[in-house]
């Protein structure tokens, strides 16, 4: 399993646009991908799940991927985070 922390820097937090970008990125991977925020874990392939956490700007989230394509998935997540201005780290 691979795991990484991100600080959300998008000013409006995890609103519809960044959430769709992330969900769209991970949907094509086979791995089980989870996002954890304040002790709550949701499926990163679920836009409702991700948005329901009400993640605001400045929050730290942990994303974990588990499965055969986990490394590639995590690389794509990092890429999307930067490209969409969701997180700069």
């Amino acid at each position: 399993m691979t795991e990484k922390q991100f600080t959300i820097t998008d000013e409006a937090g995890m609103h519809a646009r960044p959430a769709s970008a992330l969900v769209g990125t991970v949907s094509k991977f086979k791995s089980d991908i989870q996002l954890e925020f304040k002790g709550k874990k949701v499926n990163l392939k679920s836009i409702l799940g991700v948005m329901s956490l009400g993640i605001s700007s400045g929050s730290v989230v942990t994303i974990s991927a588990d499965g055969e394509d986990e490394a590639e998935a995590m690389a794509k997540i990092e890429e999307a985070m930067k490209a969409e201005g969701i997180s700069n780290q």
Binding site: R17, A19, S20, V42, K45, S46, I47, L48, G49
Partner: peptide, 16 residues
Amino acid sequence: AAIFGAHLMVLSDPEL
């Protein structure tokens, strides 16, 4: 139009 992309995502949301 991007919002309808989000709506489409809701329709295929595994948690729904």
